[in-house]
């Protein structure tokens, strides 16, 4: 399983309120949530994002509320992977549970720039910045987590 896309870069402590503001939590519709993804940190995100794109961010990505609507919105907007040095723990668990690939890699998160073209090999954990030619090694997912992501979420994989 691989990811390939262009990078949308954000800073530290991106919280779930800016990923999907609570004013849109009166729905569980994936497409409606995707239409407001990242709205309070980057109004243009929904217009820019293309299927397969990758979010690269600073530490503690997804902090705050436990709303699963946050990884759902990111995944439904077409993003194939999020790379950060660390993730807030509830977001980390939620992302895997709904089948959104996330990788902890401080080196990649520091080096990859906005707009870069990036590929990720989930089997090996190798992240390649095609634009610069640099490669980074993240801890690959164990097979059972890869299986959850490939099946599209925890409950689909049971």
């Amino acid at each position: 399983m691989n990811a390939h896309g262009f990078v949308h870069r954000y800073g530290d402590n991106v919280d779930t309120d800016v990923i999907i503001p609570a004013r849109y939590l009166n729905t569980a519709s994936h497409s409606e949530l995707a239409a407001h993804c990242m709205e309070d940190i980057d109004k243009e995100f929904v217009n820019k994002v293309k299927p397969g794109d990758i979010i690269v961010a600073g530490k503690n990505f997804g902090c705050g509320s436990s709303r699963e609507h946050a990884p759902i919105a990111i995944k439904a907007s077409g993003v194939s992977c999020v790379i950060a040095p660390t993730f807030a723990r509830i977001f980390y668990r939620n992302a895997i549970n709904i089948g959104l690939a996330i990788l902890e890699c401080p080196e990649a998160a520091a080096a990859i720039q906005n707009g870069d073209e990036v590929t990720v090999d989930f089997d090996t954990g190798v992240i390649t910045d095609v634009t610069t030619g640099e490669s980074f090694q993240a801890q690959p997912f164990p097979p059972f987590i890869q299986n959850i992501i490939e099946k599209g979420g925890l409950l689909n994989s049971l």
Partner: peptide, 26 residues
């Protein structure tokens, strides 16, 4: 609890933590 502030009940000497909706369902 599918709410991040579920950690509140630690005040009572319980282990209590927030999760997402899929974990709640399971």
């Amino acid at each position: 609890g599918a709410d991040s502030h579920t950690c509140t009940y630690g005040a009572l000497g319980a282990f209590s933590t927030g999760v997402g909706s899929t974990d709640m369902a399971a």
